[in-house]
Design a protein around this nucleic acid. Structure first.
Length: 426
DNA sequence: TGACGTCAAGATCCG
DNA sequence: CGGATCTTGACGTCA
């Protein structure tokens, strides 16, 4: 198989310093504050793109929060003028690295609403997303993904309204838009129908499809091929979304991590065409790198070593046995160890923490600060550790304390570690 | 009216 | 005061 397979992730990069996208409340969206936030966010985007390219990640969704309240009538800041140079720089960098970017307005952007105000605001929101990409100067294969919207008791009328409103959009907006099947209202067959009316590419989302199945009986592969017909050369390679169900949460909720065996089954069943696969998963770049490495041939040992440097304290805390197994594994410089490596990482991810093991790992991590922390900081840390031992505080607070110290003392190694990953989501 | 989803911001509480 | 924990925000739809 020599089809191109790019795998990417959405918006947030974990285990990397200076990539946080900041936002604010509407009441704090005054000029000077917004200026500061946008500057921070563009710097963060630049850093994330560089990281992605370095890790062979060529597909990335830019957060809608990159310009907070960009389409809000009360916010009048001329961000595109103010940051013209920064935006162009990022665009050039994206092109140089061969990265493809996208954006995705949230579920509250509803082009087919019955309320004309909602439609107007939605158009402004869509305009902002496409305009942001225009400002980067990236070509029209860099897309903005839309859902169709609500049903309002009459699906065919709602579809008609979507088509009418879509047609009203400027060509400069339309050329970037693509539409996706959702988990409640519009299944892939509905979206394909709309696509034939509008000549707009369709993104197939596997989890939405599983939950909101179409009447026609087709395999995943056949649906993807049906969607492929909606993609023109100027649109770039066909995009699909891939997600796994979070087992403890409601239907459609994304999993914390992509289970690699399940992903492999999907991946090796894909039709014989170029595809860009956007992962929708909580741990973002972690799963992306896992999926890339596990589906590549001849993964260099150095890439596993890089990942191991980031994972090791996490694994030491969660699953010490795996820590020693991986250390042994990586001594073998000849064989391809990727699958073994990630099978142990997944075991660690799925393990329940044992207090004594986590304390050991936390003490290892604290070792980085031994010579720089103040006496008060040391006492505070030891106290947190004791509380954790006694069960009066949770591990997450111990890790947050360590993360604060890592930020304060700028310990690169820890700032670039996955040790803190489970403080970010449940 | 409140749940839905998202996640950081912001508020409040505690020692 | 720092830090832990709870609540709010911003959005539209639908029961």
């Amino acid at each position: 198989m020599n089809n191109r397979r790019n795998i990417g992730y959405a918006c947030i990069t974990h285990g990397l310093a200076n990539v946080e996208i900041k936002t604010c409340r509407l009441k704090n969206a005054a000029y000077s504050n917004l200026l500061k936030i946008i500057k921070n966010n563009l710097d963060a985007l630049k850093t994330a793109i560089e990281y992605n390219a370095k890790n062979n990640i060529y597909l990335f969704r830019i957060s809608s929060d990159i310009i907070p309240f960009a389409s809000h009538p009360k916010v009048l800041i001329k961000w595109s003028k103010h940051f013209d140079k920064e935006l162009k720089d990022i665009g050039k960098q994206i092109e140089r690295y061969g990265v493809r970017v996208s954006m995705h307005p949230g579920q509250y952007t509803v082009l087919n609403s019955q309320d004309s105000d909602v439609v107007c605001r939605s158009i402004e929101e869509i305009r902002y997303h496409t305009y942001f990409l225009d400002c980067l100067g990236v070509d029209e294969s860099n897309k903005v993904i839309l859902h169709v919207g609500g049903i309002y008791g009459d699906k065919s009328k709602a579809i008609k309204r979507f088509i009418i409103n879509f047609n009203k959009l400027d060509d400069s907006i339309k050329k970037r838009l693509i539409i996706e099947n959702d988990d409640v209202n519009y299944n892939v067959e509905d979206v394909l129908y709309i696509s034939t009316e509008l000549n707009v590419p369709v993104v197939f989302d596997n989890l939405h499809h599983k939950i909101n199945i179409s009447e026609s009986d087709k395999s995943i592969s056949e649906w993807i091929l049906a969607c492929n017909k909606t993609w023109d050369k100027k649109d770039g390679a066909q995009k699909i979304h891939y997600a796994q169900q979070h087992l403890q949460k409601s239907k459609g909720a994304h999993s914390n991590t992509i289970l690699i065996n399940e992903f492999r089954d999907f991946f090796y069943d894909l039709p014989n065409i170029d595809l860009d696969i956007m992962l929708e998963v909580k741990d973002k770049n972690l799963s992306t790198i896992k999926c890339i490495l596990c589906t590549s041939q001849n993964t260099k040992i150095s890439r596993l070593q890089n990942e191991w440097a980031k994972y090791k304290y996490y694994v030491l805390g969660k699953y010490p046995k795996g820590y020693y197994e991986i250390r042994e594994l990586l001594k073998d410089k000849e064989s391809d160890l990727t699958d073994d490596f990630y099978s142990i990482i997944e075991k660690a991810r799925l393990s329940e923490s044992l207090v004594s093991n986590e304390i050991n790992a936390a003490q290892h991590v604290f070792g980085y600060f031994k010579h720089c922390v103040t006496a008060a900081e040391k006492t505070r840390f030891l106290k947190a550790l004791d509380s954790y031992k006694e069960g009066t505080t949770q591990l997450i607070n111990v890790k947050k304390a360590l993360e604060r110290l890592a930020k304060k003392y700028q310990i690169e190694y820890l700032l670039n570690s996955y040790y803190f990953i489970d403080t970010k989501f449940k």
